[in-house]
């Protein structure tokens, strides 16, 4: 079954009560942040807190990511020294500009893995592009390492770089989101959308989630537990979608059994992409727990 990454929840790395309970809200991935949510003079404290928490606490199987500081800051290298050793599933690199940024970080991770006897390659990577340059290089960045499982867009810094601001319809982000999606699909990795910071504007949030789902994103970063259910609801296929997908797959299996190359449903021809989409809908529904897969083939990256 493929891994759902509909929601990736940011958790400020220097807040013990948030760090200890991070997994209880049901986000698909929890991301402890050592970067922007931590004040400069608390970088040491946050690093040690996340380090000790990951060493000692049981997050009951929730996927754990840690966003480190960039290697161009005085904290990035030290963050890696600490975090690699406690083996989160994913290390997220902020503000990636070039594929070299990913390779540099990979080299250090590899070095530490080797030193500690951790199987090389076991820690995955995610990169966030947050500037015009990063977005333009998204294609190379997304393909820079076998460890990469996803690429994300960070909108706040990006719109500043573009000399504009964020709007509710997200027009200013359309080109960048599309570029990141193209890069992700080309590399066969996940595409994750940016945060929506006005926690109180639920309607605006719903619209944005629908929008990015329609664009093709696998999920969205969230900053508040309240946002999790909204995203999951929108990303869960409706009973109608499930029903239709089931029928498409049945028809496809039928055709395969008959040795027929042509799949048809209700007298209409069904193309290969439609079959793939139906498979995906059922995988998503299965992962979301609303559908029991029976021998169907799940899509995995």
């Amino acid at each position: 079954m493929f891994k759902l990454r509909r929601t990736m929840m940011y958790v400020p790395g220097n807040n013990p009560s948030m760090v200890k309970d991070a997994h209880i809200f049901g986000a698909d991935t929890v991301m402890f942040d050592l970067e922007d949510s931590v004040a400069l003079n608390e970088k040491d404290a946050a690093r040690l807190l996340v380090y000790n928490a990951l060493k000692r606490l049981d997050y009951e199987g929730t996927e754990i990511a840690v966003r480190i500081n960039g290697l161009d800051t005085p904290y990035g290298r030290e963050d890696l020294e600490a975090i690699v050793r406690v083996r989160p599933h994913i290390i997220r690199l902020p503000k990636a500009e070039t594929s070299k940024d990913v390779r540099d970080i990979e080299a250090i991770i590899e070095e530490i893995e080797a030193k500690e006897g951790i199987p090389v390659g076991s820690i995955q990577l995610m990169a966030a592009v947050e500037s015009a340059r990063g977005v333009l290089n998204a294609r190379e960045i997304a393909a820079a390492s076998k460890r990469l499982v996803g690429i994300a867009i960070g909108a706040e810094d990006f719109v500043t770089d573009m000399q504009t601001t964020r709007s509710l319809d997200g027009m200013e982000l359309l080109a960048a989101r599309s570029q990141v999606l193209l890069a992700a699909r080309n590399a066969g990795i996940y595409a994750l959308d940016t945060v929506f910071s006005d926690v109180n504007n639920e309607e605006g949030f719903i619209n944005e989630v629908k929008h990015i789902k329609q664009l093709g994103f696998d999920g969205k970063s969230v900053i508040n537990p309240r946002q999790i259910d909204v995203v999951h609801r929108i990303y869960t296929p409706t009973p109608q979608e499930i029903h239709r997908s089931e029928r498409i797959l049945k028809a496809s299996e039928e055709a395969a059994r008959k040795g027929s190359g042509v799949v048809s449903l209700d007298g209409k021809m069904v193309d290969k992409p439609i079959i793939e989409r139906a498979q995906r809908v059922l995988s998503l529904a299965t992962a979301a727990g609303t559908y029991e897969l029976e021998g169907g083939e799940a899509i995995a990256y």
């Binding site: 807040n15 009560s17 948030m18 309970d21 926690v199 508040n224």
Partner: peptide, 8 residues
């Protein structure tokens, strides 16, 4: 829990 999103 502290997801109040206050600015300091």
């Amino acid at each position: 829990m502290d997801y109040l999103g206050l600015t300091e």
